[in-house]
Amino acid sequence: MVAFSSGRGPFRVRAGRLPPVRRAIVWAAVVLTALLLQSTVFAQIQLVGAKPDLVFLVTIVLAYLEGPSSGALGGFVGGMAEDFLLNQPKGITALTLTLLGYAVGALRQYIASPSPLLPVAVVGAGTVVGEVFFGLVSFLLGQNVGSFAFVLRVALLAGVYNAVLTPFLFPVIRRVVESSRAKAYRW
């Protein structure tokens, strides 16, 4: 408790204790919001028959900002939440997003471009790769996902849709991430 009344100097290390809990709560709220928006508002505003995948978007942005371990963990939680709302073997989305979060976080360290369009490109490409992987695993588990052409079409459309939404949602998610990270030091 003392640690949080003054978060400077030697208390800094101890002040780091709360953030995991705080961040878990914040992330649960972000994932829940993404799921709710995806199943209500964005389910109605479709792009040539395809919906965006906000949980993919959130995972990729988190991995982009925070690195591979946060990306993998956030992806696992978001994917599991999404899985429990789907009518297919649970765990496929969790598997996809764990690997996607890790991959984006790991690759991020090798990209040193200051371009503001970089998050847009990363989200777009990440969504396409993730959706194709999801389709492939679903197919291997005997799910009826249709032809490869259909999976590719859905993946590309969802990728484009997610990329279009990134400029609006990226600043919001970044704010949430930074506030949940820096709060302890500000006190």
Partner: peptide, 12 residues
């Protein structure tokens, strides 16, 4: 990551 992937596979 290995732990989370294992958890996913276990769930599936």
């Amino acid at each position: 990551v290995v732990g989370l992937v294992a958890a996913s596979l276990l769930t599936i």
